[in-house]
């Protein structure tokens, strides 16, 4: 048990350099803009005094180390600066927008796992037709760009069938039923591609495990096939499946940027896209930071989960 704890502690410590690198990337976003970022941001009608004021506000008139320390210090206090366009504190803006992104990606990954894992098990253990059908789904899911799939779903569900709204959003707390109605298409759009990856991983991990000698010994012990698959093979395939789910959440967070724009969901992704077109750099920074931190935390949880699932990993016996 102590080795488990040490494993978790080691993995948590490993995220510190990752967070540091990430913070530098985000910090540099505004500072690497070619030319004068403040001028670019405010447009050419801004007066020199105005530019100087905003530059001072953003701390861009200090030396780079001081800038970073001030910025990181403010970050620790939860101060992300304020939006250039609306002048609202960015921490408040994120607090409104993160729940939307979390709801979208959370529901999508749950749906993707609910489709991908059972189909992957069938694909690994089933007959020829099951294998062909699931392979077809994998190729379909991987080759169709998610935003085009989303457009086609809108065409079907709001155009032809007219049963779902094409885009929009109401908070879950205000109107849970309509919130979910708005979420159906974006969640489905995001989930199909992810389900294909999870299916493929489940299938290959399980196929690999079923070829291993200990499966033969389990059969020699008189265990039923169902019991071998659910009790042993899945358990051995789980670390690989969980790892890929973790990676796919990263892909999902990226995909959410497009899907939020497509379905007009007021999430962090849409915030970033709008902010880029408006050259609203502080908002870009805040949005990128929020998504990146989410991704790093998810990776951390995934790795700890994998360690818990495979005793050899937490004992440091294999990678």
């Amino acid at each position: 048990m102590t080795s488990r704890l040490a494993f978790v502690a080691r993995r948590v410590l490993l995220t510190i350099p990752v967070l540091f690198v990430m913070s530098i990337v985000v910090f540099l976003i505004i500072r690497l803009v070619p030319g004068d970022p403040v001028r670019t941001m405010l447009g050419f009608r801004a007066t020199d005094a105005n530019v100087a004021e905003v530059r001072h506000q953003l701390g861009l008139d200090q030396d780079i180390l001081t800038q970073y320390l001030n910025w990181a210090g403010a970050l620790f206090r939860g101060d992300l600066g304020s939006d250039i366009v609306s002048h609202a504190p960015l921490s408040e803006l994120l607090a409104q927008r993160l729940p939307v992104t979390f709801e979208l990606t959370g529901l999508a990954i749950v749906l993707a796992v609910a489709i991908g894992v059972p189909l992957g098990i069938r694909a690994a253990t089933g007959g020829r037709w099951v294998k062909r059908l699931t392979e077809g789904f994998v190729v379909f899911g991987i080759s169709i760009p998610d935003f085009w799939l989303g457009i086609m779903l809108v065409l079907l569900f709001t155009g032809t069938l007219a049963i779902l709204p094409p885009s929009g959003y109401v908070p879950f707390a205000d109107d849970p039923v309509n919130n979910l109605r708005y979420m159906i298409l974006p969640v489905l759009t995001l989930a199909v591609g992810e389900a294909a990856y999870i299916l493929r991983t489940t299938r290959s991990a399980l196929t690999g495990v079923l070829d291993r000698p200990f499966i033969t010994f389990l059969r020699a012990k008189g265990l039923s096939t169902r019991r071998i698959v659910s009790g042993h093979a899945l358990r051995n395939a789980a670390p690989a499946i969980v790892t890929v789910i973790g990676i796919q959440i990263g892909v999902l967070l990226g995909g959410a940027i497009i899907i939020e724009t497509l379905f007009a969901l007021p999430g962090v992704g849409r915030l970033v896209v709008t902010a880029i077109t408006q050259r609203n750099y502080p908002a870009v920074q805040a949005g990128v930071l929020a998504i990146a931190v989410t991704f790093i935390v998810v990776s951390l949880i995934t790795d700890i989960l994998v360690g818990a699932l495979d005793p050899r990993v937490s004992d440091g016996k294999s990678t």
Binding site: I276, V284, A292
Partner: peptide
């Protein structure tokens, strides 16, 4: 490995945020 700190799409967007579309 540092490049992998951000999800692919987010990294692409970050590049574009800096260098313009």
């Amino acid at each position: 490995d540092m490049i992998l700190v951000l999800p692919a799409m987010l990294l692409a967007i970050t590049f574009i945020a800096i260098l313009g579309p």
